[in-house]
């Protein structure tokens, strides 16, 4: 019994999630249907991958708000290349995009010492610009190969590949962050850059790695999104950075770095996704939905912080 209580105390957000989940299942019949659950998971998966990548960078105490543009750019590039050169070249390009963007971001942040918000903001504008240039007049690129659409939407046991990919990424990320020296050094770097440096942690390497992981995640998400929608538009995913960041912070990862993990982000994501999904199901007008969404966001953060403060007051 005490264990259960402790669990509830430590995992308030998860509990919140379960409560909304159950509440939604009671209010609408369709909610708790297999199709709808899968639908929900599919909806959160692309931005979910971005959010997991974002978790790494937020743990190091930085932001990356160029992710949306990287998604758009990678979608456009991959689809264009796949049309003319095939999958292998396209995948290489995807990795190259993730790697180069991450490298540029980290260079600007670490070496040139620009605030990561601005460095990646510049990138955000720049990469989207390139995506526009590639598509000439901004019209979406359509994949000409059949299988492209299947990468995301193909199913195994009636569950789309996309969902599998997302969950595999979550599990791997959680493992890396918790159980490897690589992951732990990412935390050290974010907790206090100077202290970690004095302890001999190669802070430059880990920060760079986090930026690369984040932008590669975004590039992959760009591919998966264009595959799911079967089109790649340069205007796509303009709200990705903010959504991902919200999920990360809602999950309880502090923007000042050094805390958080992938599972927390997953919970944050699911709550955000669930709210949208449940509100849609109940059939509330979109404006009121918006209001409810905002209110819930405020409520969750407040409740979480309130309990955290109380717990701290007791323990210290």
């Amino acid at each position: 019994m005490k264990n259960i209580l402790n669990f509830i105390k430590s995992q308030k957000l998860l509990v919140v999630f379960i409560v909304i989940f159950l509440a939604s299942s009671f209010t609408t019949k369709y909610f708790f249907s297999f199709t709808n659950i899968i639908n929900l998971l599919t909806q959160v998966s692309t931005y979910g991958i971005v959010a997991i990548g974002m978790t790494f960078i937020v743990i190091t105490g930085e932001f990356d708000i160029s992710v949306g543009s990287v998604m758009a750019l990678s979608g456009v590039v991959v689809v264009s290349l796949i049309n003319s050169y095939g999958l292998a070249v396209a995948m290489l390009a995807l990795i190259a995009i993730g790697f180069i963007v991450g490298l540029i971001n980290s260079l600007l942040v670490i070496k040139v010492k620009i605030n990561s918000f601005i460095a990646t903001l510049g990138g955000m504008i720049f990469y989207r610009g390139i995506a526009f240039l590639i598509t000439k007049d901004g019209t979406p690129v359509l994949p000409k190969v059949e299988y492209y659409n299947k990468i995301s939407t193909g199913t195994l046991f009636n569950i789309p590949f996309l969902v599998y990919i997302f969950f595999i990424i979550v599990i791997i990320s959680e493992f890396i962050l918790k159980k490897t020296t690589f992951g732990r050094n990412i935390y050290s770097t974010g907790c206090n850059y100077e202290v970690a440096k004095f302890a001999g942690v190669n802070v430059v390497f880990y920060k760079t790695a986090a930026f690369i992981i984040c932008s590669t995640g975004a590039a992959l998400a760009g591919l998966l999104m264009s595959s799911r929608l079967n089109t790649a538009a340069p205007i796509a995913a303009d709200d990705a950075a903010l959504s991902a960041l919200s999920a990360v912070v809602l999950g309880g990862t502090s923007l000042s770095g050094g805390t958080g993990n992938a599972l927390k982000t997953l919970v944050g994501l699911m709550i955000l996704g669930l709210i949208v999904n449940a509100l849609n199901m109940v059939g509330i007008s979109s404006y009121i939905q918006l209001a409810i969404k905002g209110t819930l966001l405020i409520l969750f953060v407040s409740i979480e912080r309130y309990f955290q403060n109380r717990a701290q007051a007791v323990s210290s």
Binding site: T180, T181, S188, C191, N192, V195, A196, F198, G258, T259
Partner: peptide
């Protein structure tokens, strides 16, 4: 103090030599 406040005691002691 040169400690990483968001991490545990054991991690602070063995920082960068966790494995």
């Amino acid at each position: 103090f040169n400690l990483l406040s968001t991490l545990s005691i054991s991690e602070n002691i063995f920082v960068n030599r966790l494995s």
